[in-house]
């Protein structure tokens, strides 16, 4: 196992290196001027020139690239051009928000998706099955912003159940969870759909297995048997779906973060793009890629643990 993890980790190094280079080059060929973006349109030409010089923006690209790699090698993501703070700090300050949002969405996906997936499978082709399948297809098809808009209009404005600003400046854990519900639900709808579909087909596979059929034919209490197996087998689709769609989840989180005005990786990426804050943008892209690589690795490991039929490569 350890050697497998090590091998997988090693194999991600060239990928990460490629990512670094792509990010570095792409950002620097982008139009727009960090000096103007940062100092404002009323800044004098002298001030702009001075800023560019100070930030090393006048250095040749290859020199900037070298500095960038040197920084990284020493474990630093550099310093933000806008705030002057270490990029690692900015990332660390928003990362929990994105993670709690993503996990919140996955949580909703599981508690809603798994039961209805199993129910669908048990009453296959019954009206409940049809109903849930249509609902899940709708869930898959709902554009993220439409869900968010409708949820806000109903739950925040009409019924006043949840606040619109989902990030309190203080408050305890419960407050934080309470504030997370609406955005997580909004982002989680697509996960509900994916997990429901996976759970359903996994269940159908299980129900098709000989031992279940035999058990049922022998008059064993069918429901209990199915639920017992279902719960064990539900783990597989969850792991699969989380691994497959984690990138999509983090991507869609950008929209959730914008609409709910939450801090997060995606929102900070859009912000740094706007401000041409090269260093922060680099850091964010690297961290988000790293996150996906890690999740993929974890998924593979979980998959191997949960389902002994899958042999490690």
């Amino acid at each position: 196992m350890a050697s497998y993890i090590l091998k997988r980790l090693m194999s991600t190094i060239p990928t990460l290196f490629g990512i670094l280079t792509i990010v570095f080059v792409m950002i620097r060929i982008a139009p727009g001027d960090p000096a103007l973006a940062i100092l404002g349109d009323n800044a004098s030409q002298e001030a702009l020139d001075a800023f560019r010089e100070r930030m090393g923006l006048n250095d040749p690209m290859i020199v900037q690239y070298w500095d960038f790699l040197k920084d990284l090698a020493s474990g630093s993501l550099g310093v933000s051009m806008v705030t002057g703070k270490p990029v690692a700090d900015s990332v660390a300050s928003v990362l929990p928000f994105t993670l709690e949002l993503a996990f919140g969405a996955i949580f909703f996906g599981i508690i809603i998706g798994v039961p209805i997936g199993i129910i669908s499978a048990i009453w296959r082709n019954g009206w409940l099955d049809y109903f849930f399948r249509v609902v899940s297809l709708l869930g898959l098809s709902f554009p993220a912003f439409l869900t968010a808009i409708l949820l806000i209009l109903w739950l925040s404005i009409e019924w006043r159940i949840f606040p619109v600003i989902s990030t309190p400046t203080g408050g305890g854990l419960w407050d934080r969870i309470y504030n997370l519900i609406l955005p997580a639900l909004s982002l989680g709808i697509i996960m509900v759909a994916y997990i429901m579909r996976s759970a359903r087909s996994a269940m159908l596979d299980v129900m098709g297995e000989d031992y279940i059929r035999t058990a049922r034919a022998k008059g064993a209490p069918g429901r209990r048997l199915i639920w017992h197996h279902a719960l064990r087998n539900a783990l597989i689709p969850i792991v699969t779906v989380v691994g497959l769609y984690f990138g999509l989840l983090i991507g869609n989180a950008v929209l959730t973060e914008i609409i709910f005005n939450r801090p997060g990786l995606g929102k900070l990426i859009v912000l740094s793009l706007n401000q041409r804050d090269y260093t922060t943008l680099q850091g964010l892209m690297i961290v988000s890629a790293l996150m996906i690589v890690i999740v993929n690795l974890l998924t593979d490991l979980c998959y191997a643990l949960v389902d002994p039929r899958v042999k490690l490569k």
């Binding site: 990928t15 490629g18 990426i269």
Partner: peptide, 24 residues
């Protein structure tokens, strides 16, 4: 496949966002 891995390593929407923001 390494190249594909690199592309897959970015969150889905972020890849598109980044490309369009940079290229126009």
């Amino acid at each position: 496949m390494r190249c594909m891995d690199m592309l897959l390593a970015f969150p889905t929407l972020i890849t598109g966002l980044f490309i369009v923001a940079v290229l126009g």
